[in-house]
Design a protein around this nucleic acid. Structure first.
Length: 879
RNA sequence: GGGCGGAUAGCUCAGGGGGAGAGCAUCGGCCUUACAAGCCGGGGGUCAGAGGUUCAAAUCCUCUUCCGCCCA
């Protein structure tokens, strides 16, 4: 059967994906005899679309899954999506806004209904896109964080943590997004430097004896000041500690306190303390028992406490406050100042720190074993430099604010009794009566849980926990987690904490942190920059395999990927190359070749060589895959396939295929090498390999996905063949070089001499001259032991001997002298280097013997070559 | 301010103590029936700078400069 002239991914990709899925190849077998390999997908947002980061992330997982599956493992790869509370709610809010609706107008129940509708409509988009990419997920395990089972796990965890005293509710300062109308965890706030101003405010002393000047970037919060603090060591203010100030505009009496946390270098050294709206001030207030005055509300508008400023939006209030301070003489000066402001990671609104009643998880006791698990090496980060980042964060972890004032998410399983005030924490769906006073006036907490709360349970909730399922006993802990560094805190660390706490076991043995995909200039891809590369468009244009191979080939550990469309196009050429090489092999295969046994001893030199090189490739690829160096694994096959198999062996094979006595074994070797390469490549480029597999005359499984990954066969290594072929290649390149330099086309009939004093090389040539003549496209090559150089001859010096071509009057003497002189100079500089080494006594004494021997060998070789070159140059110049 | 990473060919990057590599780009020649998405050949680098360790440094150590990212 003959393949089409070029590979067209669009014709085959969907077809093969369907076959794989229908045959159930992605599903685990629970075969007791097989080693286990499991991964849980980092669940993408249910309403999201596949971006290039997902493409990389899932390609890596797929490479691992397919490789392990082929290597005899029972593989479970759990896919699924995340409900992404705030993000999804925002999307749906925008959607209903088009109908002139707000979620408040719709009401909680109706709104949630709309979100579910949205999820049903769009939730599968990203799943289908993963399939386009070729992801071999175990789809029967597909989960969604709001599924019934996972919701049950969430409740279970919440209730248990509460019972253990690891969840509490209280009034604390938190990050508040006035636009989303919810609290955020510290992590969900993005800090960015912003150009702002520093205002110097004058607070008069109560006794009328002057002022204390404080500097602030947020003058509107002065309405909520409950103290002014100075450093206890600050001589300027020592005398004032304990005295009182009168807060301008408001007239409240506030004390001057001493606190070590105050930086005397900042501003005037005296700072205003607004415990309800600043994290540091909140802590300070706790230390000094200061009251909290909340002047900015959850809506971003000023509260009752703000007196005359009540009802003003926070930035309006700032303007007004500054105006009033100025007119009343309390504003000393203002200067430009760079400050760092928190922004909501979902909507980018400037965060308002404020005191509010929220739910928290006590993290220290959970973090401790999670740190230990990594310290003791039960969990390994790859590359390992991420370990430190993990430790840093875990050792300084703060309690985790888990309540969100939105509607889309897991509702907090807590009810309150209106009559007796009891807090009821329950796994029940509905609580109707207060267990303490039996009142029916119970109501559920309005808040939902942070989305990451449910994600933290993902490795075991997806496997059916809290049930003791077979999946859990078989596949937990998972083998590896594949993700990017930006969610190490959000997700990875929290999974480790929850996994250890609830399963008594780590959730995964390895964490492979891959690169971030950037654009060709190294900038983060974003819609607003307009520099996104859409993976689906790339699949459409170049095929899934080309995209996958590009991502893998560029994904070196510890470095970001700079991706451009041109790279994908480039690797598409490789896919096509594989196609065409296969086409060649299949065109030349006859059924009889199937019966041939590969007996290395009986094979021609080149055959032994390619099989040997193939084995080296198999070994390397396996090693690199085990080390998570996917780029190098991919490039190993790439170089072998293109640089050795296609460039050399396929050409050589053309000679052997013509001869009756070598025809069949050559066919066999061609097929063997091709088949092995396809297997090696399948995890990277599943579609094209599966398609070609379908055309192979003889194969061990119906589909390549089910075949065994190639195993290194040491007995096929043949160093002698490698050395010989290396020499033959050098010889071939020498001839081609001369031909190219003199513009001789394939059609010129040329006779070439190979001159060498050593019999072994002459013998080798006499055995292989037919192949070399074909490769170098010359009529005749003859080895000679003795040779007197003819005037019209051009030469090319090899490591052993030299190539000579008689060009008669075609020769360009000047050019030839130039060429040889260049060669001469190269050799001389190399010789100089080696001479320097060899004349160094210490080198001879201290360097390892092999190194010294190698240098000596090289010295001799270069010396010989130089001698020949010098003689030739001299000859040429005589004319 | 603290931490991490990077600086190697025009571009994108591998390499990580012993003769500077790949892909793309470039130049020259080829429609040689697997492939012009290709083949053949060539040019191109004081491996950021300065010190040090070593017989030997692109590679290890120190410092400097510049560029990213993370945290405060």
């Amino acid at each position: 059967m003959i393949l089409d002239k070029s590979y067209e991914p669009k014709k085959v990709e969907d077809k093969w994906y369907k076959v794989w899925e229908e045959k159930g190849y992605f599903e685990p077998s629970f075969d007791k005899n097989k080693p286990k390999f499991s991964i849980v997908i980092p669940p993408p947002n249910v309403t999201g679309v596949l971006h290039i980061g997902h493409a990389l992330n899932n390609t890596i997982q797929d490479v691992l899954a397919r490789y392990k599956r082929m290597d005899g493992y029972d593989v479970l790869w759990i896919p699924g999506t995340d409900h992404a509370g705030i993000a999804t709610q925002n999307v749906v809010e925008k959607e209903i806004a088009k109908e002139g609706l707000t979620r408040q107008a719709l009401g909680r129940e109706k709104f949630i209904e709309r979100v579910w509708q949205w999820k049903e409509r769009c939730g599968n988009i990203i799943i289908d896109q993963l399939k386009k990419l070729g992801a071999s997920c175990s789809w029967s395990y597909q989960r969604f964080t709001m599924d019934e089972g996972l919701s049950r796990a969430v409740k279970e965890v919440f209730v248990n943590l509460w019972k253990e005293g690891l969840i509490y509710r209280g009034d604390y300062i938190i990050n508040w997004c006035p636009r989303c109308g919810t609290a955020l965890a510290d992590l969900e706030v993005e800090m960015r430097e912003t150009q702002g101003k520093l205002w110097y405010l004058k607070y008069p002393l109560e006794d009328g004896r002057g002022f204390v000047v404080v500097a602030t970037t947020r003058p509107e919060t002065m309405l909520g000041d409950t103290a002014v603090a100075v450093n206890p060591e600050d001589e300027r203010y020592k005398a004032l500690i304990g005295k009182f100030l009168v807060l301008p505009l408001i007239g409240r009496k506030i004390p001057i306190i001493a606190d070590k946390s105050v930086d005397p270098e900042f501003g005037t050294g005296a700072v205003k303390v607004t415990p309800a709206h600043d994290f540091a001030d909140f802590e300070m207030a706790k230390r000094h028992n200061l009251p909290l005055v909340k002047v900015i509300g959850e809506d971003g508008f000023m509260t009752e406490e703000a007196g005359p400023y009540k009802g003003l939006e926070r930035y309006e209030a700032r303007k007004k406050v500054l105006e009033d301070l100025k007119t009343q003489g309390f504003l000393e000066k203002e200067e430009d100042y760079k400050l760092i402001l928190g922004h909501c990671y979902r909507c980018d609104t400037v965060i308002e720190p404020l005191v509010s009643k929220q739910w928290f998880v006590v993290t220290k006791p959970l973090a401790q074993p999670a740190i230990a698990a990594v310290e003791y090496g039960f969990i390994k980060f790859i590359p390992e430099n991420w370990t430190n980042l993990y430790f840093d964060w875990m050792r300084n972890i703060r309690d985790w604010c888990i309540s969100r004032q939105i509607w889309w998410g897991h509702r907090i399983p807590v009810w309150y009794c209106k009559d007796c005030g009891e807090t009821i924490v329950s796994k029940e769906e509905v609580v109707e009566r207060c267990p303490v006073c039996n009142s029916e006036k119970v109501y559920q907490d309005e808040d939902v849980l942070d989305t990451w709360f449910s994600s933290a349970l993902w490795p075991f909730s997806t496997m059916g926990w809290p049930e003791k399922t077979e999946t859990l006993t078989t596949f937990y802990p998972t083998s590896v987690l594949v993700t990017s560094f930006d969610i190490i805190f959000f997700w990875v660390a929290r999974m480790i904490m929850m996994g250890i706490h609830f399963m008594g076991q780590i959730p995964f043995q390895k964490v492979y942190i891959h690169a971030l995909v950037r654009d060709e200039k190294g900038q983060k891809m974003s819609k607003s920059r307009g520099n996104v590369i859409d993976p689906l468009l790339m699949i459409e244009k170049y095929g899934s395999d080309a995209l996958r191979f590009t991502l893998i080939a560029l994904a070196a550990q510890g470095r970001d990927i700079k991706l451009s469309e041109a790279r994908i196009e480039g690797f598409k050429h490789f896919i096509n190359k594989i196609w065409n090489a296969s086409r060649f092999v299949l065109m030349n295969i006859e059924p009889e070749s199937a019966e041939v046994e590969i007996a290395p001893a009986k094979l021609p030199l080149w055959h032994r060589w390619i099989l040997s090189e193939l084995q080296r490739t198999v070994k390397k690829v396996r090693e690199k895959l085990e080390e998570f160096e996917f780029d190098q694994a991919a490039m190993e096959v790439y170089h072998f396939f293109w640089g050795k198999f296609c460039d050399w062996f396929l050409e050589v094979a053309k000679v052997y295929l013509k001869k009756e006595e070598t025809k069949l074994q050559t066919q066999k070797v061609l097929l063997e090498v091709l088949t092995t390469c396809l297997k090696l490549l399948h995890p990277f480029i599943p579609f094209v390999t599966e398609e070609i597999w379908a055309y192979l005359p003889k194969k061990d499984t119906e589909h390549i996905i089910k075949t065994n990954y190639p195993v290194f066969k040491e007995h096929l290594l043949d160093e002698l063949a490698e050395e010989k072929v290396q020499f033959l290649q050098e010889l071939t390149i020498g001839i081609r070089n001369i031909k190219a330099e003199y513009g001789l086309t394939a059609k010129t009939d040329l006779k070439v001499f190979y001159h060498c004093s050593e019999d072994q090389y002459l013998n080798l040539l006499s055995q292989e001259n037919e192949v070399i003549e074909f490769l170098a496209k010359v009529k005749k090559i003859e080895g000679v032991k003795q040779h007197t150089k003819n005037k019209g001859e051009v030469s090319y010096i090899l490591s052993k001997g030299e190539v000579l071509i008689n060009l008669e009057n075609l020769i360009d003497l000047e050019k030839e002298v130039q060429r040889l002189t260049k060669e001469k100079e190269k050799l001389e500089s190399k010789l100089k280097q080696i001479e320097k080494k060899l004349s160094n006594q210490e080198f001879l004494e201290k360097a390892p013997k092999e190194v010294v021997e190698k240098e000596k060998g090289a010295y001799q070789e270069f010396k010989d070559r130089l001698k020949v070159i010098l003689r030739y140059i001299e000859d040429l110049q005589k004319n």
